[in-house]
């Protein structure tokens, strides 16, 4: 029998300690152990992007990381980004532009879009598409998502003066 292993990490600015089996991936840990169900699980092999979270500031696939590999890491999920208000403008642009229908892809899409805007505040539409290329949406056809990210970028640049 393989025994559970203790882990300690920070999730959305809170210290978390837990006992996990080595095979448990970070997505399932967030969803099943911490009830942070905004991180979605689609394909479980890295293809759909629905499970995107931030680990130590970088976006990653949480289905391709073991919870135990996140020992001492700083993890941020869509709940963290929502509650802090960091992406409030992006969320409202998604709403206004109809950039979501069923919403399954949306938390991860927001994660990836915010990641782009932090490193490139003025991306063109090709750069937006490129950065979101690893996130699948089966509903919108992507145009509205690109619109929402582009308009958020413009609004942020205007506010920054």
């Amino acid at each position: 029998m393989i025994a559970p292993v203790p882990i300690a990490l920070t999730v959305n600015h809170e210290r978390v300690e837990a006992l996990v089996l080595p095979r448990l991936n970070l997505a399932d840990f967030l969803r099943d152990h911490l009830s942070l169900t905004g991180t979605h699980v689609g394909c479980e092999h890295g293809v759909c992007g629905a499970c995107t979270v931030r680990v130590n500031g970088d976006i990653v696939r949480s289905c391709l990381i073991l919870a135990i590999q996140a020992e001492n890491a700083t993890v941020e999920t869509i709940e963290g980004l929502s509650d802090s208000g960091e992406i409030a403008d992006l969320q409202s642009a998604f709403h206004q532009r109809n950039a979501l229908q069923c919403g399954f892809c949306t938390p991860a899409m927001l994660m990836a879009a915010q990641d782009l805007l932090l490193t490139n505040p003025d991306p063109d539409r090709d750069q937006i598409r490129e950065h979101l290329s690893g996130n699948y949406c089966r509903c919108t056809g992507y145009h509205a998502i690109v619109d929402a990210v582009e308009s958020t970028a413009h609004a942020r640049l205007e506010r920054a003066g």
């Binding site: 992007g49 970088d58 976006i59 290329s133 690893g134």
Partner: peptide
């Protein structure tokens, strides 16, 4: 190579 989130790992 792959996508940004995969290139980060």
């Amino acid at each position: 190579v792959a996508h940004p989130a995969i290139r980060n790992r």
